[in-house]
Design a binder for these strands. Structure first.
Length: 665
DNA sequence: TTTAGGG
DNA sequence: CCCTAAA
């Protein structure tokens, strides 16, 4: 495998890099990821810029972080500089902006090239690269999406909030060795000292986290890319000329500022991409289906919980459509399913939190949206809907205006101890991040409207900005660069939202929406659950989401006629030629893949063998089942022997077919 | 990509 | 149906 090359040399203890023989599937995945990565190269600039920015920020803002930051910063600049040219420009503006688009691509390429030349990266074992890339790509993805979404700014801002956490550097996934290795590499190769461990690089947690979160996206991308490539070069534009080179570069850059935005491309590809998909489409249904499926599957995993969240938020279609901001505002109102005639519970809007990244000791958070605290409103039964709305609005407004505090939830549990460090609380790990949630709670003092939960005596993070809490000082610049930093309507957001919460679908939502909101929302939800997706805060995403949610293909039981067709085809073609069967009898049934047909046959055989009482589903005529058995037996014996032959006849039930392949009727 | 099987 | 290993 090419991965293997040079592994042993791992420059600086990149032990991680090695991809041991893994089951094929694994390997494959790895490869796929690589593919993605390529696409991200362009993002380098972004990364670089980001890194730079971060560095700067770190310097200024985070006293807590390493002292060394400064030096590095300088060097970091240079490094970046080569590639992109932001010498003294504030990262935010330049980089981000550039990064956001294709322009970035171009730049990045050149940059990458430069870097390539300059740095002798050759030594990097491929494996390493891959590994790194892999991770990187993920990171990038997340970052990217953020940017695209418009949340980017938001994210970054938040991200940088310096949280003096004691998070341990290593994520479960990565060994420190990996991390270190990266650093070393960077330093050596790039001579960039800018990124110190202390400071600015947030690899691990972030990556890890995203890994999960983004997989979908990544995957999709990968698939897209790979497939696409085969078909056309359209996408190539984004790619750097030399993959390896790029990778290296990327690596370098990435290492530094893992976090960032490169994903633009991906983003485009996966979603915006009108282009990519079509390509896939071209393929036979099999492929396209598969792709989608994969994507969906992945996404779903991540998004799984969200449904709840989303749910809370949206009530009316309006709300759905609305940008997150609305949600924040409490725009959404719920009618109270509550029996008390007049009281209305508002539960709010989706709260999401999180994307976080972390570097060594810093944990970054991106908060998609907050949950609005529960609000009780009383309205006369004779009140008009309009008045109800106003009432609710007022209540919400009061809350928002009145004073909020932020609650932090980990695994659905409120973290009350404000004095504990994040690491102590367990927030350093990726897991935590995934399960981390923020809520807005009326501050006890002010609560204009009735407060909700007695239960939450939330502790608050220092930040109390009502809506978006944790912006760091750093961010401002970014904001300026990008107009709608926080509250912006970020179309792509949905992903983000999901990303945050992404757990396995199975995970109880509770995790995310604990306490009040959750319970409340449920109550509310009881009403008319609009489609979850519909509720999604972000409109754009809705579609995607739906699709994504599909995860598992909807079940489509075979009709008797289909079974018959299948039996017929198998009788003629035999087993083992599912593609032919597909072509012959299910050509137009795009939803039936040859694998499906094969599976169906398998089940038919099984069905035929079991007692009728044990059969479920739409009964298949015994006659067909008999034919199934006969054909199965027949073909079992004749195997591949006469594939070309036509054996239209009906095989003996018993399955003892004639030797020469002429089935007895 | 298709086939074959396990899950 | 999904997922993989193999071919």
């Amino acid at each position: 495998m090419k991965l293997k090359k040079g592994l042993d040399h791992g420059l600086n203890g990149f032990h991680v890099a090695t991809i041991p023989k893994a089951p094929r599937s694994n390997r494959r995945r790895a490869q796929l990821k690589k593919t993605d990565e390529d696409s991200e190269i362009c993002a380098f600039d972004l990364l670089a810029s980001l890194a730079r920015k971060l560095l700067q920020e770190s310097e200024s803002s985070s006293a807590s972080s390493n002292a060394s930051g400064n030096d590095h910063t300088a060097s970091g600049k240079d490094a970046v500089k080569d590639g992109c040219q932001f010498q003294d420009k504030p990262l935010k503006t330049d980089c981000l902006e550039q990064g956001s688009c294709e322009g970035s691509v171009v730049i990045s390429q050149s940059a990458s090239q430069n870097c390539d030349q300059k740095c002798s990266l050759n030594e990097f074992p491929l494996a390493e690269d891959d590994d790194i890339l892999e991770r990187t790509s993920k990171v990038i993805d997340s970052g990217f999406s953020g940017n695209v979404g418009g949340d980017a700014i938001y994210k970054s801002n938040i991200v940088n909030a310096n949280i003096p956490s004691k998070v341990e550097g290593g994520s479960p996934d990565f060994g420190e060795s990996f991390y270190n290795g990266m650093e070393n590499v960077l330093e050596q190769q790039l001579e960039t000292k800018g990124m110190e461990k202390g400071g600015t690089v947030f690899l691990i947690p972030f990556i890890t986290r995203h890994r999960n979160a983004n997989k979908l996206g990544v995957r999709d991308d990968d698939d897209n890319l790979s497939r696409t490539n085969k078909i056309s070069n359209k996408l190539k534009v984004y790619r750097p000329v030399t993959r390896i080179r790029d990778r290296r570069i990327r690596k370098l850059l990435t290492s530094k500022y893992w976090k960032t935005a490169p994903k633009l491309k991906d983003f485009e590809l996966s979603r915006a991409d009108g282009g990519v998909k079509p390509l896939h489409r071209k393929r036979k249904p099999y492929n396209s289906e598969r792709c989608q499926r994969d994507a969906l599957h992945k996404r779903r995993k991540f998004y799984g919980h969200n449904s709840l969240d989303t749910f809370d938020g949206g009530f009316s279609s309006e709300s759905v459509t609305n940008s997150p901001e609305k949600g924040r505002n409490g725009d959404k109102r719920r009618l109270p399913p509550m029996s008390h005639g007049a009281s209305v519970v508002i539960s709010s809007v989706a709260g999401h939190q999180t994307s976080l990244l972390s570097k060594d000791s810093n944990v970054k958070f991106s908060i998609k949206s907050f949950k609005v605290p529960e609000i009780f409103v009383e309205v006369s039964e004779t009140a008009t809907v309009g008045s109800l709305k106003r009432t609710v609005m007022d209540a919400v407004t009061a809350i928002l205006g009145g004073g909020l505090r932020v609650g932090v939830l980990l695994h659905g549990k409120k973290i009350r101890d404000d004095n504990r460090t994040l690491s102590q609380t367990g927030i350093s790990s990726e897991d935590s991040l995934d399960t981390l949630g923020f809520t807005l709670e009326p501050s006890p003092v002010q609560g204009p409207p009735p407060l909700c939960s007695a239960e939450d005596p939330p502790l608050s993070l220092p930040c109390d900005t009502p809506q978006l809490a944790p912006r760091s000082p750093l961010t401002p610049a970014l904001d300026s660069a990008i107009p709608n930093a926080l509250p912006d309507p970020r179309p792509p957001t949905s992903e983000e939202n999901h990303v945050e919460s992404n757990h396995e679908p199975m995970t109880p939502h509770t995790d995310l929406l604990p306490d009040t909101s959750l319970s409340d929302s449920r109550a509310i939800v009881a009403v008319p659950p609009i489609k979850v997706e519909a509720l999604a805060v972000v409109p754009v995403n809705n579609k995607i989401r739906r699709t994504d949610i599909a995860q598992r293909r909807t079940r489509r039981p075979f009709s008797v006629s289909e079974v018959e067709a299948l039996v017929q085809a198998v009788e003629e073609l035999g087993t083992g030629r599912w593609r032919d069967v597909k072509l012959r009898s299910f050509e137009d049934a795009d939803h039936r893949t040859y694998v499906d047909l094969k599976d169906k046959w398998k089940t038919l055989v099984h069905t035929a063998r079991i007692a009728p009482q044990q059969r479920r589903g739409e009964p298949v005529p015994q006659e067909l089942l008999d034919r199934v058995l006969a054909a199965h037996a027949y073909w079992s014996q004749h195997q591949a022997k006469q594939q070309g032959k036509h054996h239209p006849g009906i095989l003996k039930i018993d399955g003892q077919a004639e030797e020469d392949g002429v089935p007895a009727i």
